Amino acid sequence: MEKIFVTGIGTGIGKTFVSAIVAKSLNADYWKPVQAGFEDGTDSEWVSRWLKENGSIVHPEVYRLSKPASPHIAAREEGITIDIQHICDRMPNVNRTLVIEGAGGLLVPLNNTTFVADLIKALGAKVILVSRNYLGSINHSLLTARVCRELQIPVIGWVFNDQYLDYEEEIVQWSNFPRIASIPYSDNVNGTFINSQAAAIQKQLEELL
């Protein structure tokens, strides 16, 4: 089973959006083990809207926390401690590729001692890095890339999205991680858009896996 962990350079940069596109392009299952905040719906519910037609399964969260905050804080408020080994034990056992979406970035704390990066290593997953083009994203992207190198986390490549400014070539060059895709900004994210972007990245993604 190929395990692809989608993480980003921060919060709100399009991990869920990219996870849906990647899962669609590979006919993969989707799993978000830690969800913090669900008043407006969960990421799993959003992704499931776009994956039904190709038979992909959206697996349930291991931790479903109500407060939209850092997972360690949201868990603490519910009297829970997030346990990485428990997440690993609950990892879906499937015959197809599994796309795993993280919470925030690599150094988001899951409890008082472990971070999202520790979960990636424990799951034995390869990583897709999501970067959104905004002022400051070069710094955030290269910091993320450096953490991956220092922790020896295997990186498949970058998916860029949004169109504030084009920092992509510099980030690819300085990080030495390849570009998988550039996803344009859209005011109308629907099934047609998800399908078209999935088709556009499929060849490049398969070559890098």
Results as ranks from 00 to 15, higher is better:
residue 61 E to D: 11
residue 65 L to A: 07
residue 106 L to W: 00
residue 50 W to D: 12
residue 124 G to N: 08
residue 107 L to S: 06
residue 66 S to W: 15
residue 125 A to I: 10
residue 96 R to I: 06
residue 122 A to G: 06
residue 58 V to F: 02
residue 106 L to A: 10
residue 73 I to W: 05
residue 97 T to G: 00
residue 74 A to F: 07
residue 123 L to Q: 06
residue 93 N to E: 06
residue 126 K to I: 08
residue 79 G to Q: 06
residue 63 Y to N: 01
residue 91 M to G: 13
residue 127 V to Y: 05
residue 74 A to Y: 07
residue 122 A to M: 13
residue 131 S to G: 15
residue 109 P to N: 11
residue 85 Q to F: 03
residue 97 T to E: 07
residue 84 I to K: 12
residue 73 I to K: 09
residue 79 G to V: 01
residue 89 D to R: 15
residue 93 N to Q: 15
residue 105 G to Q: 15
residue 72 H to M: 12
residue 119 L to K: 03
residue 58 V to Y: 03
residue 76 R to K: 14
residue 75 A to P: 03
residue 50 W to K: 15
residue 119 L to T: 05
residue 104 G to W: 10
residue 72 H to K: 05
residue 61 E to K: 04
residue 91 M to H: 04
residue 73 I to T: 11
residue 47 V to S: 08
residue 66 S to G: 14
residue 91 M to N: 04
residue 60 P to Q: 14
residue 127 V to R: 03
residue 80 I to F: 05
residue 111 N to I: 02
residue 121 K to Y: 01
residue 71 P to K: 03
residue 63 Y to E: 01
residue 76 R to A: 03
residue 113 T to F: 07
residue 77 E to N: 10
residue 114 T to P: 03
residue 107 L to E: 12
residue 128 I to A: 07
residue 130 V to S: 10
residue 88 C to T: 13
residue 66 S to E: 12
residue 55 G to I: 02
residue 82 I to G: 01
residue 120 I to C: 14
residue 91 M to A: 08
residue 126 K to G: 15
residue 113 T to C: 08
residue 84 I to D: 09
